[in-house]
Design a protein around this nucleic acid. Structure first.
Length: 506
RNA sequence: GCGGCCGUAGUUUAGUGGUAAAACUCCACUCUUCCAAAGUGGUCUCGAGGGUUCGAUUCCCUCCGGCCGCACCA
């Protein structure tokens, strides 16, 4: 038996996901819809197990974190206060020749006016001296075209202000030639809808692009009712929506996705860096606990210059996907920006009272935010293995196996009667199946040779198979426990099986 | 959103201007005392729409979807 890396891992994982009913393309019979996915019978179990593990470890097994569930559609002012409305509506301009893309509000142009007559246009990207750049370009333009006369000082105009007639005459900053720029087009990343039957501008609402704002907006409600004390966290899981320009890489970047976010509120005088580190470590440990290989995990600190002005630091836990090392979990120290914004926008004070210092302050927050679908994909990529095994005739063949942690495996145990046509075997097997089913996701299978059934379970990541044979019913009642990764078999009693499950599945 | 390549069964592929095939999978039955056994039978396919044509899965156009690159990723 030898494990080897799969040459085209991504293709293999996508193929398995489809073949075994983990993930389907949304609306497939209508040709599919880009950026949307459905989870099949096994996929929904795996996803639910990951979510449940997160919820249990993050909320139920802690004293300092509470859960909530907020609505997907919130008051539109939430997204103005959070900055999402402005941040999502940058108009963009494409250069059809150079394939460059510019933000229209960072691209400036000016008319080249000589003796009061417009001779053409020049353009420049926003810089420390945009006007100077435009002036230089205008002078160069005049020289090249050998125009005589007096050049008027240029007036910089944002490209968003360009008229329909001007756009074809404005040169692309990349090529210097006019005619290749498209009109500014708005790329709004938020899905819009209308609340109520009237479709006018007053009824516009958005599908949330993140779940985090729910925790901020409900902060006072939780503080007033939840008997919580700093430091404490509020957590939620749920769907979010982003109208991504290019969804790619299977479920890695999709337009409808599920987030698991927690906002951990700390005292303004507390050491944010310590908590930030604490949560990075917690998240890493948690990923290991559901079986992601440590070799695939790394950290990436966002550059200070690239952070939003309010952010004190953001660290991403990265995962080595087949298509590259990508962000899995972002742990952001957001200061008190979000609560502060909502206090300003709503007029409702968000500060809490410190009994020791007798002062009011707005708590700061550390935010570990992760996409459930991304973890799902990371889990599949990390667990997928193809092994060369040799059968008793010496014939080599490939065994496909998902090495999923028992914590998240969609099926924990497969119950298999050794033979289908011996009623004593199938009866005992069904009895055990019914019993296990009360607590665990189990699977009963009597179709085909026993080896084939083992392999079917390998492919969907079932950690254990138990086989009911003649010793079970004629001798001691024990059955064969076959382990997925080692393929080893040993005889166990029912009590031993239950103890094993109790220990491994939590 | 731009460019390139691509779209035949659940999967991987073959093939054709006269409505399509193989392997594996899957289902049923027979058989089977521990790692994809065998036999028999069966289900399922040319991404969608238009055009050219007597006839299109095949040629053309549009759309949809996929992969790669660019851009985007608040």
């Amino acid at each position: 038996m030898s494990a080897e890396s799969t040459p085209n891992l991504m293709e293999a994982v996508v193929s398995l996901a489809k073949r075994r009913g983990f993930v389907f393309q949304s609306s497939e019979i209508y040709g599919g819809l880009n950026g949307f996915f459905d989870y099949g019978p096994l996929g929904v179990e795996l996803k639910k197990n990951i979510r449940d593990c997160w919820w249990n470890d993050m909320v139920r097994r802690r004293d300092d974190i509470v859960g909530i569930e907020t609505s997907i559609i919130m008051h539109p002012k939430v997204w103005q206060a959070s900055g999402h409305v402005d941040g999502f509506t940058d108009p963009l301009v494409d250069c059809k020749v150079s394939k460059q893309r510019y933000r229209a509000d960072q691209l400036f142009f000016a008319a080249v006016t000589v003796d009061g007559e417009v001779k053409g246009y020049v353009s420049a990207l926003e810089s420390e001296d945009t006007v100077g750049a435009l002036q230089a370009a205008a002078e160069s333009f005049k020289r090249k075209k050998a125009i005589q006369g007096t050049l008027a000082p240029v007036v910089a105009v944002e490209f968003t202000e360009a008229t329909e007639a001007q756009i074809p005459l404005i040169p692309s900053p990349a090529t210097g030639e006019p005619g290749s720029l498209t009109p500014p087009r708005a790329f709004n990343m938020m899905f819009e809808t209308h609340v109520g039957p009237l479709r006018d501008s007053a009824s516009v609402a958005y599908l949330r692009p993140e779940t985090a704002q729910g925790m901020f907006v409900d902060f006072k409600n939780v503080v007033d009712t939840g008997r919580v004390k700093l430091p404490f966290g509020i957590a939620q899981t749920g769907k979010s929506f982003r109208n991504e320009i290019t969804p790619r890489n299977f479920v890695f970047r999709s337009r409808e996705f599920e987030q698991m976010e927690m906002e951990f509120f700390i005292h303004e005088d507390d050491d944010w860096a310590k908590w930030h580190r604490h949560w990075i470590d917690w998240c890493k440990d948690w990923l290991l606990s559901i079986g992601l290989p440590a070799s695939h995990l790394s950290e990436y600190d966002h550059l200070k210059e690239k952070l939003a002005f309010y952010s004190k630091g953001t660290t991403d836990i990265m995962f080595k996907f087949p298509f590259g090392v990508q962000e899995l979990w972002g742990i952001a120290a957001r200061g008190n920006y979000d609560l502060g914004q909502h206090e300003k926008a709503s007029g409702v004070p968000q500060a809490i009272f410190d009994e020791t210092t007798k002062k009011k302050f707005i708590p700061h927050v550390i935010e570990p935010a992760v996409g459930l679908d991304r973890i799902f994909l990371a889990v599949l990529c990390g667990a997928y293995a193809e092994e060369q095994v040799t059968d008793e005739k010496g014939k080599a063949e490939t065994r496909t196996v998902l090495r999923l942690s028992p914590r998240i495996a969609p099926v924990k145990v497969a119950v298999l009667p050794l033979l289908k046509n011996k009623e004593a075997l199938t009866e005992r097997a069904k009895e055990l199946y019914k019993k296990l089913q009360r607590r665990y996701a189990v699977f009963y299978d009597e179709a085909g040779a026993i080896g084939r059934r083992y392999r079917r379970q390998d492919e969907i990541g079932t950690p254990w198979c138990v086989t009911i044979d003649f010793d079970t019913i004629e001798k001691d009642g024990t059955f064969t426990l076959r382990e997925r990764d080692s393929m080893e078999q040993r005889r166990v009693t029912e009590a031993e099986l239950l103890a094993l499950l109790d220990e491994q599945v939590y």
